[in-house]
Design a protein around this nucleic acid. Structure first.
Length: 813
RNA sequence: GCGGAUGUGGUGGAAUUGGUAGACACGCCAGACUUAGGAUCUGGUGCCUAACGGUGUGGAGGUUCGAGUCCUCUCAUCCGCACCA
């Protein structure tokens, strides 16, 4: 009888399906675990990254199920998005058809891996029912003022024909297609994530030690909180006149109010309204105006690569404390999107301001002592700063803010690098934004009873323009408020909106799915997700948005959860030949082919054995063979088992080899809880089982074999469930899968203990000592055994590490 | 530039947190056994050395009886952010 993975795996997959073995209980009082692997985009086929992701999650889910937890381990489909439209353009297949047929195929693939997902909680985010509830949340956010529509400069990807959120721009290029992003002025919908910036930042502290520190740091930097002073520069009368009386003043933000007396110029972004006004009204030299326009057309990334460049605007402002006139420039390094697009410049104490001032011969005025050379950005005492002179700059920061506030000149302010989340996309395959434009009423949300605002099926997808915009009738509607003819919004929601609340949808009992999006009792029971598993690439985008949504939905009354994901494991990439597997590089390994050749258990075992989950995994075909060999050996040795239950073994009657085998078996058992609950170092648990099997093989006591198999199959079931269940069923009627197996300490009691003898810090020899020998006896034995190395030496210190070693520190006599 | 990691045999990786470095596996070498299989089994395998022995966790110092592990400096690689005033 040889190991036949195909037969075994098909048998158990069918049985699990028939038993509905992996459905969580509806009882909300049992101890629970919510194990979640990030859901896949239905691209067509699984890749090894998916297999790794789900093998990790499944191991945890199966482990906790065996420990009598109520386990929620769901799967679904992140189903909206560009690739479905691209496929439509390329192959003429409707995005809906493409998506759902991909889902059907991938569901089968997941099935062959024997993953213990709930079947009843599966959904696709493009299901109209999911859209319906999401649109309701969106409307509620609008009503709370959290969602707003505004026309502003946006990131535009010409190749995807859509707007991108800040988070979706990577080095100035589109995160999806890598095309350079352009800046464009257009209306869009925004979620006020900045309102939650402080909470998002502060709650990161709760995740310390539970999320990878790298992810926490990335989020902290992305939010980019900084505190300082915001104040207005008033324009001189002459400048006001030049600007046609349209502007009196503008606001600037600084984190260095302590350097305020060193201001020698002010700089505006090329997009700043004042700069724009000057350019548009031909108030500047035409050559200069052209140059400014050229900068304004450049993306931020392009600008960052350029040298500092700027032009005087021939206007001035008044220093709020000294009354001095300060020239105003426009400069390419001033960002329009941060701090109002205007800065005060202190070249003596800021590197950028210094570089710019040097280039254009602007004055430089030192106001902080310290350092020989300028710019000096360190700490020091203030000079030439009126009544603040002599103060420490850290103290002056606060005092100067206080002064501004008491004089009504400005106030202490917090700024964030985080921008509000632009959620509208000019694409078809997404959730429609449920609003209507009415001539009389303006922007009006659709009535709840009319939700979902569903996508029309009869569209032509050409890649040119927005198919909803081009549809002959879809956007014609009546105003939900006044009933007059109105026009439907044709933008759809960013797909990251769907993945921001799916963790709550899974938790909601499917029996309630029709009526509610999120059920409070269910959510409060199941959330937070006890273990979330996914790729590091979502460190900011998805994980920040999902945290934000969690807080918003909490404040809308849907649940009481502050953080959605209690613990996060970021898995490493799967590599082959040192590079990420990708079709274009031709270095992929197809999961289907692997399962077909070796079976799912081998695929899972290899993936968990080859590297710890957090690290990159280098594919190795012959190591896959090794994993297969181990399973075969395990299967073969099952014939050594004679008992049906965990035997009572008289330790004293055993051979040395049998005792060692028991030690190895129980060491693996001891290790397992730590691995499954804390470290996730499955590779070391598998290695421990291999050691145990090797040790069992060196002895022939059938009780020891029975005990070893009983325990090992329990430990390995989460990793190689099919073969482990098959053997357990045959040998033990699956009794060994019920509850926790206790560690027997007597197994570890040894008749003699091996001590390593180190002399002068070097390992020299070994001694065997009785367990009840005292230190003097151990030392005497060590000296005797090490006499050769002690000749002519004097022992200056004697160290005995219990059960480990003896170290004799020596020096020449 | 700022921030975060990571450096251990030919390879993937272990090392109970300061106590025998290289577990386990791949690969390689030698042998056995074959009704030639996805074989299987046995032994060996960090480096230098005929051996005694020496040496060895990116490098240089330090603390310690003892350092892959702690401290200081340094080098390399990877990742993230990148003019945020």
């Amino acid at each position: 009888m040889s190991y036949n993975p195909k037969e075994i795996e098909a048998k158990w997959q069918q049985q699990w399906e028939a038993e509905q073995a992996f459905e969580p209980s509806d009882s909300l009082t049992q101890k629970k675990k919510y194990i979640l692997s990030m859901f896949p985009f239905p691209s067509g086929r699984l890749h090894m990254g998916h297999v790794r992701n789900y093998a990790i999650g499944d191991a945890l889910a199966r482990y906790y199920r065996k420990q009598d937890y109520n386990v929620l381990h769901p799967i679904g489909w992140d189903a909206f998005g560009m690739p479905a439209e691209n496929a439509a353009i390329k192959h003429g297949k409707h995005p809906k058809e493409w998506t759902y047929s991909n889902i059907d195929y991938m569901r089968k693939e997941l099935g062959t891996l024997g993953l213990s997902f709930s079947k009843t909680r599966e959904f696709a985010t493009c299901d109209p029912l999911y859209t319906k509830h999401e649109q309701k949340f969106i409307i509620e956010m609008f009503e709370k003022g959290l969602l707003y529509r505004e026309s502003t400069t946006v990131n535009w990807c010409e190749s995807c024909h859509t707007v991108l959120a800040n988070e979706q721009v990577e080095e100035g290029c589109c995160w999806r297609c890598d095309n350079p992003v352009e800046l464009k002025e257009m209306p869009g919908y925004y979620l006020d994530i900045i309102r939650y910036a402080d909470e998002l930042l502060e709650d990161l502290a709760q995740l310390e030690g539970k999320w990878p520190s790298q992810v926490i740091t990335m989020q902290r930097n992305w939010i980019g909180k900084s505190q300082g002073l915001a104040f207005d520069f008033e324009l001189t009368e002459e400048s006001k006149a030049k600007l046609g009386g349209k502007f009196d003043r503008y606001e600037v933000f600084t984190t260095r109010p302590d350097t305020i007396y060193g201001v020698t110029y002010s700089a505006l972004a090329p997009e700043h309204p004042i700069t724009k006004y000057l350019v548009e009204h031909n108030l500047l030299d035409s050559e200069v105006a052209e140059k400014i326009k050229a900068i304004a057309n450049m993306s931020e990334v392009e600008r960052a690569k350029q040298d500092k460049e700027g032009y005087p605007l021939d206007i001035s402002v008044i220093h709020p404390l000294t009354g001095e006139e300060i020239p105003v420039w426009t400069a390419n390094f001033v960002l329009a999107s941060y701090g109002g697009g205007a800065v005060m410049a202190v070249p003596a104490h800021d590197e950028r301001d210094f570089e710019f001032a040097t280039k254009y011969n602007l004055p430089i005025k030192r106001v902080i002592e310290g350092g020989e050379e300028l710019p000096y950005t360190g700490e020091g005492l203030l000079v030439d700063s009126a009544r603040f002179s002599g103060m420490k700059n850290s103290e002056a920061k606060l005092k100067i803010i206080e002064h501004f506030e008491s004089e009504g000149l400005g106030k202490g302010t917090t700024n964030y690098k985080l921008r509000n989340w632009g959620v509208s996309r000019q694409r078809y395959w997404g959730a429609p934004i449920p609003f209507v434009h009415c001539q009389d009423c303006g922007l009006v949300p659709e009535k709840f009873e009319n939700l979902p605002v569903a996508l029309p099926d009869d569209v032509e997808i050409t890649g040119e323009g927005n198919p909803l915009e081009n549809h002959p009738t879809w956007k014609q509607c009546s105003c939900p408020k006044c009933g007059k003819d109105a026009v439907r919004e044709t933008d759809t929601l960013d797909t990251f909106v769907q993945s921001s609340w799916y963790q709550f949808r899974y938790a909601t009992n499917p029996k309630k799915w029709e009526e509610v999006g999120i059920d409070k009792a269910d959510t409060d029971y199941w959330l937070g997700v006890d273990q979330y598993i996914g790729g590091i690439e979502h460190a900011i985008l998805h994980l920040l948005y999902a945290r934000f949504f969690t807080k918003v939905l909490r404040d809308l009354g849907y649940h009481d959860i502050d953080e959605p994901f209690q613990r996060l494991l970021t898995q490493g990439m799967v590599l082959k030949d040192g590079a990420k597997m990708s079709k274009s590089k031709g270095n992929t390994v197809d999961p289907d082919a692997l399962v077909d050749k070796y079976g799912a258990d081998t695929a899972r075992l290899f993936i968990l054995f080859a590297a710890p989950p957090q690290k990159e995994l280098e594919w190795n075909d012959s190591a896959v063979d090794g994993a297969f060999r181990f399973i075969k050996k395990l299967y073969d040795r099952s014939s050594k088992v004679t008992g049906k239950t965990l035997p009572d073994i008289d330790q004293s009657s055993l051979s040395k080899e049998s005792k060692l085998a028991r030690v190895k078996v129980y060491e693996a058992l001891q290790k397992s809880a730590d691995v499954y609950e804390h470290t996730f170092a499955f590779n070391t648990l598998i290695a421990a089982c291999m050691e145990a099997l090797n040790a069992l093989d060196k002895q022939d006591n059938s009780d020891v074999w029975t005990e070893g198999m009983y325990i090992m199959l329990n430990l390995l079931e989460p990793i190689i469930p099919h073969v482990a269940t098959e053997l357990s069923e045959k040998l033990f009627g699956r009794e060994n899968f019920k509850g926790k197996i206790e560690v027997k300490d007597e197994v570890f009691v040894q008749e003699s203990i091996l001590y390593v003898v180190m002399i002068g810090g070097k390992k020299r020899t070994e001694i065997e000592v009785s367990p009840d020998a005292n230190n003097d006896e151990i030392l005497a034995a060590a000296k005797e055994a090490g006499a050769k190395w002690l000749e002519g030496m004097q022992v200056v210190k004697e160290i005995v590490v219990p059960n480990k070693l003896v170290n004799l520190a020596v020096k020449p006599k």
